[in-house]
Design a protein around this nucleic acid. Sequence first.
DNA 1: ACTAAAACCGACAATATTAGTCGGTTTTTA
DNA 2: TAAAAACCGACTAATATTGTCGGTTTTAGT
Lengths: 134, 134
Amino acid sequence: MIKISTKSQYGLRAMVYLAKFPKQISSIKTISKSEDIPFDYLEKIISKLEKSSLIKSKKGVQGGYFLAKNPSKIRIGEIVRVLEGDIVLVKCISGQKGCKCTRERECLTKSFWKKIQDSLNSALDSLTLEDLIK
Amino acid sequence: MIKISTKSQYGLRAMVYLAKFPKQISSIKTISKSEDIPFDYLEKIISKLEKSSLIKSKKGVQGGYFLAKNPSKIRIGEIVRVLEGDIVLVKCISGQKGCKCTRERECLTKSFWKKIQDSLNSALDSLTLEDLIK
DNA sequence: ACTAAAACCGACAATATTAGTCGGTTTTTA
DNA sequence: TAAAAACCGACTAATATTGTCGGTTTTAGT
């Protein structure tokens, strides 16, 4: 079944939360409570988002996280790709190493999957965090 | 990682195979060999396609499978949805039973996922089997 | 009528991925 | 100096995917 992982769903909700309170620093505890996301899991998700510079952190008491840039500069696609890893519908989409497309029919379908992949990515990139919060 | 299951990839390739040889009946063994798909697994995939009337079968010696309708009448989306089950990016997309959207922010993101889901489905429906084989 | 080739079927097993947990260490503010 | 928070890596549990197996039924050809 094709679906978006809870990781991405949680991640997007966390980002939307941060976007809604741009002036303040929010702790994992706070986000976790208001968005009803398991604390320890959210920690891992947030950590990924921080490592790819979508958000920044402040350690210690009163610490927490905040967006690294303006919500209008953050496309949803960026968030999803950080969390899901790259969106690759089928392996070996265009002649990478280890990719032996000997069968012509196989490659017929591959170029189709590639189209779908592109269309998915551009759909994800068509909106920014700012678009979501209003 | 967002990806298309091998089930759908195999299924699409099998359908493309059948579309390429419209006049003849192809056995699982034949398709399995020419497309390099595990026989037993392909059997299960084919069985699903048959139950949803995308293909038809003939039992016994010289039996096999063939498309139930013209390739131009079969959208790739139909094939994928049969094999993947419905494409539901997130549970509870719009007020189904058991869906308690108490949080406004949560639903903000849900309507976004709904958009992505729709766009994915229409991308899958934009091409037919016939489009693929030429 | 018999045999072999095929569809048809349901249960099982192996593997991979996702989702979540846990026990710590480090940093910083009050 | 104590508490709150980020930060980190290893682990476990649950679920989904991928594939296997052992059969039964149907049918064409001999």
